[in-house]
Design a protein around this nucleic acid. Structure first.
Lengths: 135, 135
DNA sequence: CAGAGTAGATGTATCTTGCATATAGTGACA
DNA sequence: TGTCACTATATGCAAGATACATCTACTCTG
């Protein structure tokens, strides 16, 4: 997005500038903790159904986050069903979440600016085309 | 993001849900048209420097967009310098831009909701951790 | 046993991005 | 002339992210 080497949302190549699954997982985790399958519903509720995470992708993110020390997990003890893994944010995870807040705010702003620019230019151009360098 | 097969920002796999370069290019194009190198500055100005596109990536997007019929281009005729390619939005490109507006608005909303959820949960949890189910 | 639902995980294709690098014309400078 | 910087376009490559399909495993229902 802007600079490389940011601790959050920038790990190397590209991929959309950090994307949504990671912060969504963090947000759901910060709200309710628990296991992955529930986290998915939490995310869906948080965003009013606008953002529905792929289950496989969520587990993948959760495990990556754990590898990096941002969440910790353990198998739940009550075993009356399929094994559940309970996730919890670590202090580092909360720091990461803080970084994400700023990043998301900026993304919000960029989205807004871009949408606005698109809307105003399209309105001006109307049905022909919006090139106002028509000498 | 939500459904597959959307004409805009969803072409198959992943990649951040459509990302920013394409809509940024569209926005710059809708505002001023012109050639790629200038479009880059336009994007930077549009977003107050918050979003600086990689030049190579921009050209790549521009060409893809052209392949798909959303922009058209031709080599500029005044040749007192390196060859420039002038880009222009096609009517299809304006339709795509319209789709992007809605998509960006939603992205704006999701970013906002996620940032808000993160912020409020983190505040509640403070230094320990915010596990509690609103109860 | 078959089927559905919960829960977790992996494989793979496709896409996006950032960085490095190549090409090419023009002007500045030694 | 040779080199450097700037404008302008373009490609190669590595790193990451996502969607979809698929696999395992446990439980309950019929």
């Amino acid at each position: 997005m802007h600079g490389p080497g940011r601790p959050c949302c920038r790990r190397g190549g590209g991929g959309g500038g950090g994307a949504f699954v990671e912060p969504a997982a963090l947000a759901a985790l910060a709200r309710s903790g628990g296991h992955g399958y529930d986290l998915r519903r939490e995310i869906s509720e948080l965003t009013d159904g606008a953002f529905d995470v792929d289950a496989g992708g969520l587990y993948r993110v959760l495990r990556r986050l754990e590898e990096e020390g941002f969440v910790s997990s353990r198998w739940a003890e009550g075993d009356s069903g399929p094994q559940r893994r309970d996730y919890e944010l670590t202090p580092e995870g909360r720091d990461l979440a803080h970084d994400w807040i700023e990043h998301l705010r900026e993304r919000e702003r960029v989205s807004s600016v871009l949408a606005g620019a698109l809307a105003s230019s399209l309105k001006k151009g109307g049905s022909t085309h919006g090139k106002r360098r028509e000498g």
